[in-house]
């Protein structure tokens, strides 16, 4: 199992790196071999700026957002013991979307990093509410209900923001941001992805025994020494921070958190802890591929990343639901 997990993770990591490298040559401005040599030897040149200042941060953000969503999805599925769970179930993504919408309406969208900071702030507030709740009621059904409640509230507040939006231009700007993109992302955005993944590296190993033993239910896990409250809290912190950061960096990117763990399971990994890192690596590859597709498609300027991942992910979700329904029948 461990060998399988490591070889799968290795394969996905190499795929991600190869894709990231390959996508450095895809963009609006075609670059020749000499241009790339200039970009490497003179990073301050125009070609250097295109490669190091635009394309590489974009690729890193695409991979990082996918990785955060993949890890968050696998953690939520393991914690809730539900293959249909995904990071958005906690409502933190909606909170981040609300934060971004408010920032755009208030006109601070042009201030560098202001939208991301606002999205992050509201998502952290929602995470704090979740954590306070879990510390008292570590029940998974209650957690799902609270997540639905937070999501609905943030959705309603977002609708209110749209309603009170001062101009159609602002509304379009909010919609565009919410539909997800990694276009024109900076190294600061890439740093947010690194921060999120660093949090995951610190917290995920603490879920090892808990997620595995939860396979047999809470009572068995508890009788085997698992502190359910502790595991739930760590799982919720991990998933909510990753989901919030991913929305802060790239807007709403649908279905990656749901689909990445299923992709990994389809390759033979079943251990709910063992799927977490491979799911992150698979998520990174998925978002890089979707972003690459957007860049090479003729109407590339019009299709948003979140729309494309949802268009690909929704049929997959329907297939998963169909398979689950068949197994329950």
């Amino acid at each position: 199992m461990r060998v399988k997990s490591l070889s799968l993770a290795g394969g996905l990591l190499i795929s991600g790196l190869v894709l990231m490298g390959a996508l450095l040559i895809v963009g609006d401005v075609p670059l020749s071999g000499a241009d790339y040599i200039e970009a490497i030897t003179h990073p301050q040149s125009l070609n250097g700026e295109i490669v190091w200042g635009i394309r590489l941060p974009r690729n890193l953000c695409a991979w990082g957002v996918g990785a955060m969503l993949g890890v968050a999805g696998a953690v939520m599925q393991g914690l809730l013991r539900n293959p249909l769970a995904e990071p958005g179930i906690l409502g933190v993504s909606s909170g981040a979307g609300l934060g971004a919408s408010v920032a755009i309406v208030l006109g601070v969208g042009l201030v560098p990093f202001a939208v991301e900071a606002s999205a992050l702030l509201v998502s952290l507030m929602m995470s704090a509410v979740l954590m306070a709740f879990v510390a008292r009621f570590p029940d998974r059904q209650a957690l799902i209900l609270l997540g639905v409640g937070i999501s609905s509230l943030c959705g309603a507040l977002m609708a209110l923001v749209f309603n009170l939006s001062p101009s159609p231009v602002t509304t379009t700007e909010i919609l565009g941001w919410l539909m997800g993109s990694v276009e024109n992302r900076s190294w600061q955005d890439a740093a947010l992805c690194v921060a999120g993944l660093a949090v995951a590296v610190g917290l995920v190993p603490r879920l090892r025994a808990g997620l595995r033993l939860l396979t047999l239910g809470e009572e068995t896990a508890q009788s085997m020494g698992v502190n359910i409250r502790h595991v739930t809290l760590i799982g919720v912190i991990t998933a909510s921070v990753l989901a919030g950061l991913s929305v802060a960096v790239a807007g709403i990117i649908g279905f990656v958190g749901l689909a990445a763990p299923h992709f990994v399971r389809a390759l033979g990994l079943r251990d709910p802890y063992g799927v977490i890192w491979p799911s992150g690596l698979a998520g990174g590859v998925m978002v890089l591929m979707a972003d690459g597709l957007i860049r090479v498609m003729p109407a590339s300027g019009d299709i948003r990343l979140g729309v494309l991942t949802s268009l690909i992910g929704a049929p997959l979700f329907a297939l998963i639901a169909y398979k689950s329904a068949k197994s329950w029948a």
């Binding site: 013991r81 939860l214 396979t215 047999l216 239910g217 068995t220 009788s223 085997m224 251990d271 709910p272």
Partner: peptide, 13 residues
């Protein structure tokens, strides 16, 4: 060690 009445196994291990 405890064996509960509920026999659920969440993942196909």
């Amino acid at each position: 060690a405890y064996l509960p009445q509920e026999r659920a196994i969440a993942w196909d291990l």
